[in-house]
Amino acid sequence: MKHSVARSLEKYDKAEFGFWLYLLTDIILFASLFATYMILRGNTASGESAAALFDPKYALLETVLLLTSSFTCGIAGLALRFKHKRMALGLLVTTLLLGLAFISLELNEFATLINEGQSWRTSAFLSGFFTLVGTHGLHIIIGLIWGAVMLAYIIKTGVTSDSLRKFTLFSLFWHFLDLVWIFIFTIVYLGASL
């Protein structure tokens, strides 16, 4: 018994560290996109600049939604560790709904911009913007699918060392996306009016 606990703990640590290394490579990906955006920010091809296109208030709403979902995801993991299954499931559903609200707002923003003729084909600045924010949005969509699968998995198998380990990885991913968003919020949306 003791032996198997030790082994599952080792498996847990290995999985967590391996996934952590993947997230670190994702940081490098986002760093390149941030650098690209910051360099191309002024190249608007005589079109609208960032200050005219982006609304910091809208972005603040997105920020609060994503931050809250990161928080509920963390507590869901905590509840799972203490075997409060129903609480964990409820919080996971909340996390996914908040994430869904976030991505809806973002897609709505993209659609509005494109309808106004401000697509990624308009200028280098907008190419940089759509690539950076779109890559983050794509990660969020993948996270939402992963979260939904986690939900089904936990309902089916209950709280086991396997579901706990899998959930920890999902939770790392979700927290990471919120960390990236802090910098998108600061550099893209708040920096727009500077």
Binding site: L24, I28, A35
Partner: peptide, 18 residues
């Protein structure tokens, strides 16, 4: 530790490019 290393690499990429 690995995060600290990655942040150093990130700064090289971003500040260097700029």
């Amino acid at each position: 530790l690995t995060l600290a290393f990655t942040i150093a690499m990130m700064l090289v990429i971003v500040i260097g490019s700029l």
